[in-house]
Design a protein around this nucleic acid. Structure first.
Lengths: 204, 204
DNA sequence: TATTATAGTGACCAAACGGTCACTTGTCAA
DNA sequence: TTGACAAGTGACCGTTTGGTCACTATAATA
């Protein structure tokens, strides 16, 4: 995107809202942190609430652009090992991209403040990820890679523990190495449980 | 516990911290809400920070008393249907006890503020529940009710999705009926996946 | 009864905060 | 050159906030 002052303010606001909370964010420090005076903020936004709204707008737009549309669903892996690799690749991004980390933190800590944040939190932490893997699992079942079953239930059973460990990593980043091991162990366990039997490669 | 003023202050503080956040909590309103003046608070606690500390103290003590000790682990059910019943009973409490709900909310929204809250959050949302079910599952495996396997991994795969739905219920309480259905459906799916085969009732 | 400790009050303080406003600077078009 | 406009500044304002203090009331103790 453009690197306008208006956009830079949102960047700084995301950081501050995530780290200090909305109430704990001080407009003077926020502006000073980017070499501006507090009054300058009011040339671009009408109020502190207005800034919060714009931050949420951008989060919504970002999510819609990257995960919201069906064509953004990654192609289903051809093997269970491919599923492991793909998930670990997505996790590597999710666990280290600063903007994504801050977004999660903001959604977690401010989810009870307004309706839009609440909805976004559910999307990020539950339904969004689940829907993506539901499509993938449905495809993998069709291809005979996974046992047949309810792909939605499977996706939920897969993504919820992963999301829990992502949250743990946000909370205790110093334990990342062990957590990543746990993530991989869980995925292997999952694959071991739901992988299709070798003898049933026929398709109807 | 005793119903002293000192204790009542903690009750009110838990509510306010959970609903408005620590920063968003106003000592005047907090005191007025219980028919006191703000100065009275300072007869019992030295500062706002001190009140937060006492609230966390009490949460730690409560958790330790109710879930922390091994003898508090509920007895392992004799059947898979018993597991479902037991879990739904615990969930019924967890989803409706006001103090527990507020505690979760406080831990969620304030988990990045201090180390103790962080640790308590991990305990509440991840390791604590997992450890309880790990023991239960180990026992159920020994009794031949569940397939043999890693009880820790199983407990994680069981509790993480349940916790995710509990969080969803906190966030969107109006959807409780559907969420409880989802909870039950997940548990049934879990049982269907890990229940021991009928033919292998022998014990070593 | 006199004393002392505890719980509570209301006025007060200094700091911090969101927000406003008159003013300056720089840029581009007429 | 001038005029208009957008971007930015610093002083200022009213309000809110955590915290303090002198004072009162009550009840138990000596």
């Amino acid at each position: 995107m453009e690197n306008t002052t208006k956009e830079k303010i949102l960047d700084a606001a995301l950081v501050s809202f995530a780290e200090n909370g909305y109430k704990g964010t001080n407009l003077r420090d926020l502006a000073a942190g980017m070499g501006l005076s507090k009054s300058a903020l009011y040339k671009h936004y009408q109020s502190k609430e207005d800034i919060r709204g714009a931050v949420i707008d951008r989060m919504e737009a970002y999510y819609a652009a990257h995960f919201g549309s069906p064509e953004n669903t990654p192609p289903a892996p051809e093997t269970c090992e491919g599923l492991l690799a793909m998930t670990m690749r997505m996790l590597d991004f999710t666990l280290h991209d600063e903007k994504v980390i801050l977004t999660r933190r903001l959604l977690l800590t401010e989810q009870f403040h307004d309706e839009r944040t609440r909805r976004l939190a559910t999307l990020h932490f539950l339904t969004g990820t689940k829907d993506i893997y539901e499509k993938i699992f449905a495809e993998m079942m069709r291809k005979g890679i996974l046992k047949n079953g309810d792909p939605g239930m499977l996706a939920f059973a897969y993504t919820a523990p992963i999301t829990a460990l992502v949250h743990l990593c946000d909370r205790e980043p110093e334990k990342e190495p062990e957590i990543v091991e746990q993530l991989e162990a869980f995925i292997r366990h999952f694959i071991g449980t739901y992988r299709a039997n070798e003898g049933s490669n026929e398709k109807p």
